[in-house]
Amino acid sequence: MFAEGSDHTPARIAHEAGVGVGTLYRHFPTQESLVVAAHRRQLALVCDLATDLASQHPGNVATRLWLEQFLNHAKANSNMCSALNAVIASGANPYGDAHELLEDAVSVLLEMGAKDATLRADVSADVALLLVGGVTHAAQHSSDQQLQRLVDLFMDALAV
């Protein structure tokens, strides 16, 4: 919902979730807690995709597919930035376990690629995440063609 740039009132959010406003407030007493939960859930879904892709494809293919999905997620959720900035301004950390989720996802992909010899074995998840971060930042200001070139370069950097 945050990615859509639509009405973010508690009544609308509760309606979209199929619950009453009271239920919404019991689980998320502040708007900040709701934003953090929504952000974490969306990120967890994308990160969980890494394991699914790694079980269905060679490491290099799974990594490319995951990166494309992650970039789509980042672009679709760019409207959530203002809500996350408000959470930060309130003193909370909306990114809590984001690094751990991402590192686990990328580790699965890199391990599969090293195992099936489609990706370099000497690249750590931390280093790959730095590259993912750069590509993600650039994606916010790139055409689809430029973005595809960045994904190609990322994959070239990981290739055996």
Rank of each mutant, 00 (worst) to 15 (best):
D48Y: 11
L53G: 08
L67R: 07
D52H: 12
N72V: 15
S55F: 07
H57L: 09
V87T: 02
Q56W: 09
L45H: 08
N77P: 04
L84R: 03
A89M: 15
G91T: 08
G91R: 03
S33L: 01
W66G: 04
Q31W: 15
L67V: 07
D104T: 13
R40M: 08
Q31L: 13
P29S: 10
A76I: 01
Q42R: 11
E32A: 14
Q42A: 14
L102Y: 05
T63Q: 15
F70L: 06
L101I: 14
A92N: 06
H99F: 10
G59H: 06
A98Q: 06
P58G: 07
A62N: 10
E68K: 10
F70P: 05
A86Y: 13
A37W: 13
A86V: 15
Y95W: 04
V87I: 00
N93L: 00
V46N: 06
P58F: 11
D48Q: 08
Q42D: 12
D52E: 12
L45W: 02
R40V: 12
L102K: 13
P58Y: 09
A54Y: 08
H39M: 08
A38L: 08
L71N: 01
L45I: 01
H99P: 11
Q56R: 15
T63F: 14
V106E: 02
D52P: 08
P94H: 00
N93F: 03
N93T: 00
G59F: 03
P94A: 00
R40L: 06
L34R: 03
G59K: 00
Y95N: 01
Y95T: 03
D52A: 11
V36K: 03
V87C: 03
E32S: 07
A89L: 14
A37I: 10
W66R: 02
C47Y: 04
Q42K: 13
V61G: 02
V36T: 06
G59E: 02
L34C: 04
F70S: 09
H73P: 07
E100D: 15
E32I: 02
N60S: 11
G59W: 03
I88P: 02
L102V: 08
L67F: 10
S78E: 09
F70M: 13
A83K: 02
N77D: 04
A44D: 10
S90M: 10
L34F: 15
H57G: 05
H27D: 11
P94C: 02
L65A: 13
C81T: 11
C47G: 07
A92P: 02
E68M: 05
N93M: 00
C47K: 09
S82Y: 14
H57D: 07
A74F: 14
T63K: 13
L67E: 04
V106P: 00
T51Y: 12
Y95S: 03
L102P: 04
